[in-house]
Design a protein around this nucleic acid. Structure first.
Lengths: 191, 191
DNA sequence: TTGCAATACTAACAAGCGTTAGTTAGTGTA
DNA sequence: TACACTAACTAACGCTTGTTAGTATTGCAA
């Protein structure tokens, strides 16, 4: 990844974050990096590559995170906190890419779309494993795992809608807020 | 709204749900209702109208819901449950429209986009009102309200990713699951 | 029965799209 | 000096898009 290619990716992701994939043209991206649209093709193969490489690179990171958590022996509560922290770390350190990943993946072409969905399913299964462990331990409430895992991931992904890299919270602090919310809920324990 | 116009809207929303707004062409919609693209313009003014009318109609419903909840005297816990139920009712009884509302609103043109964001902010403020009430009552944990309201709404909106109208749960049951999750969290109280 | 409004059609336009072809200037290497 | 490589350019292609103009058909109201 040459510096110029990196610049193109970062610029493209930033544009796609604010305007969406479909509304971001190659000419938009080109003019944002001061070149002609045709010149982009010296660096990337196609517009879809920008999306696909971004999506699958992040998918790699997410998978690596959940696999590491599930490879280690810990109780479910601790595992869930670790998985949440890993997820949050990736989101907050790749804000634009994460935004595109979460909102624009359905613009992938058919075969890549299938692969993407399959890998997302596997990732969800990693969380379901933790939930089941917690239920066996008696630590988590018995839940509809599919419902809960979608809910948890939506909760985590909401981070990209408000997080500012130089704002009040470190990624670790965000992860703790999210873990507390997911584990304890909104109610004050006294009540 | 004539029957034919209704059919066009429902068909368009269904297509936009599966393919996205940008990838759904007027010719797609037309052929799905067995007419030519040009004929659609006897019923609707533009492609964006399909999106805008859908978004603002749902916005009306959401606003009405939160206003009713906040106009009634109740404790915060009950109010939050009511707001969650109202939100879930609208989502589950307008699945395609809700999907488009949640995922495609950013394709609105500039001025409508501003109005949309403004109204979404007002809706969030309705929830923040409940959160503050709950903190004053000592019932809710002290929280960063902006963080929590975005998190809650993301949690609620995740419903459209899995809910099936003729599936196992009524809207009311879904609302209860969501309320329980948001209020109590995942942890078994015994622990 | 006439006339009008609603609804469909065919044909086409202007704009914008991603991408390719062919070329050129600059840079480092044999 | 000669060559190859990189990265930029101009020009254009083929296609799709939302939309408009103009016209035909239909069914109800007068």
């Amino acid at each position: 990844m040459t510096p110029r290619k990196l610049e193109i990716f970062q610029t493209a992701l930033s544009l796609m974050k604010s305007k969406g994939y479909a509304n971001t043209t190659m000419r938009d991206i080109a003019s944002a990096v001061n070149m002609e649209a045709a010149s982009l093709y010296n660096h990337i193969a196609s517009k879809e590559d920008l999306l696909a490489i971004t999506c699958f690179d992040l998918a790699d990171q997410f998978e690596k995170g959940i696999l590491e958590v599930n490879d280690i022996y810990f109780d479910a509560k601790e595992k869930l906190r670790m998985a949440i922290e890993a997820h949050t770390q990736i989101l907050t350190t790749n804000l634009d890419a994460s935004y595109v990943f979460i909102h624009e993946w359905r613009h992938l072409s058919a075969d890549k779309l299938n692969e993407f969905k399959h890998r997302r399913n596997q990732y969800e299964n990693g969380f379901i494993e933790i939930l089941k462990l917690g239920e066996n331990e008696g630590v988590f409430n018995e839940v509809d795992e599919k419902f809960v895992v979608i809910t948890i991931l939506s909760t985590l992904n909401a981070t990209i809608e408000w997080y500012k890299p130089n704002g009040a919270f470190t990624p670790k602090q965000v992860a703790n807020k999210l873990s507390d919310f997911i584990l304890n809920g909104l109610l004050n324990i006294k009540n």
